[in-house]
């Protein structure tokens, strides 16, 4: 680790792609032979943040926001067009072996295991690649296999495993060298709810046990809520929010949800927007500033059996951030 105490330090990071543009038609095709036109697209435009060792940070944004581009610059797969990145004191784009031995990038849609062989064989290859001493390797491998509860699956050829089982093996393979920095890009994509939960608890346990720094992108807000106290929201290449997950709700949630249970079904549309109605239970959406006043009115006007005031689902809040 360098003098800088941050595990990840990003300052004014930019990535500009030059993409070819051409009008449709034969004339444009002929013109492009002699005069190639391009335009510049800023995928990441001046992003700055710092992450402490051991932090688990959600990196959120809609498709095309610049999340994966940023993660690739942080892992050394892409050269920044501007700005600086330091990860564990290294400049990722140099891809020094000492840096690569301390990080991992897990992408939910990519398979790094040997398809025809049992995962154990792929793990053995990881041992050789990362120069792990035999004892350390065996200990970590068995520990991770135990955490993932896949002891009976590691002997089966990878091609015979389900998607979720393969993902578990991917995680074990990616963490055998006990990386200090984990970039997880949609790690639970396509998995069922049970498997998502399993992966989440595995990440949390790895973070707790080894003090690793984790950056997570996910479209499943359950992943973020379960793992991240802090989130960085990126949109159109700019950081829109960097802070506590709870603060995100506080700052961007423009409304509250009031759940009301009545003895008989009643039309409550006069009090707010009805978002759900199931027998005697109705959920209303009301402006945050009016929540207390409307609640008082409902309690005064109606024979309420039960009433709750809730923050809106995080997905809705994120949508709100992108809309502003």
């Amino acid at each position: 680790m360098p003098n800088n105490t941050n595990a990840i330090q990003v300052t004014d990071l930019c990535k500009v792609y030059r993409v070819p543009v051409r009008e449709a038609g034969l004339t444009a095709a002929l013109r492009s032979l002699v005069q190639r036109q391009t335009r510049e697209v800023a995928a990441v435009a001046g992003v700055s943040f710092a992450i402490q060792p051991g932090e688990v940070v959600g990196f959120l944004g809609p498709n095309g926001a610049g999340k994966t581009t940023t993660l690739k610059m942080l892992s050394g797969l892409l050269q920044p067009s501007g700005g600086t990145v330091q990860v564990l004191g290294y400049t990722p784009q140099r891809r020094e072996a000492a840096f690569l031995r301390q990080m991992t990038l897990v992408m939910g849609n990519r398979n790094q295991l040997q398809w025809d062989l049992p995962a154990l064989d792929s793990f053995e290859l990881q041992r050789a690649i990362y120069r792990l001493p035999a004892d350390t390797y065996r200990q970590t491998r068995d520990e991770l296999i135990g955490l993932m509860e896949v002891g009976d699956l590691v002997h089966k050829p990878v091609r015979n495993l389900s998607l979720g089982e393969r993902m578990k093996m991917e995680f074990i393979g990616a963490l055998l060298h006990r990386p200090q920095v984990l970039y997880l890009d949609e790690p639970t994509i396509g998995l069922d709810v049970t498997m998502q939960r399993r992966i989440r608890s595995f990440i949390a346990e790895y973070n707790r046990r080894y003090g690793a720094t984790v950056m997570l992108t996910s479209h499943y807000m359950a992943d973020v809520e379960a793992l991240c106290r802090r989130v960085i929201v990126i949109h159109h290449g700019h950081v829109r929010y960097d802070g506590a997950l709870s603060g995100l709700v506080e700052r961007f949630a423009a409304y509250r949800q009031i759940g009301i249970s009545l003895a008989e079904p009643t039309d409550l549309s006069a009090y707010g927007q009805v978002v759900a109605s199931d027998g005697g239970r109705t959920t209303l959406r009301v402006p945050k500033a009016d929540a207390a006043r409307i609640t008082a009115r409902i309690l005064a006007d109606l024979p309420v059996r039960d009433l709750t005031i809730e923050e809106p689902p995080i997905d809705d809040v994120i949508e709100q951030v992108f809309a502003t």
């Binding site: 040997q114 025809d116 062989l117 064989d121 053995e124 290859l125 041992r127 050789a128 120069r131």
Partner: peptide, 22 residues
């Protein structure tokens, strides 16, 4: 020594894989 270990392990995996496809 580490490079030799990598070559030995990778070659072993290749032999196992290709024997499956004999």
């Amino acid at each position: 020594r580490h490079l030799f270990d990598f070559y030995r392990t990778t070659m072993k995996l290749a032999v196992i894989t290709q024997l499956q496809y004999r």
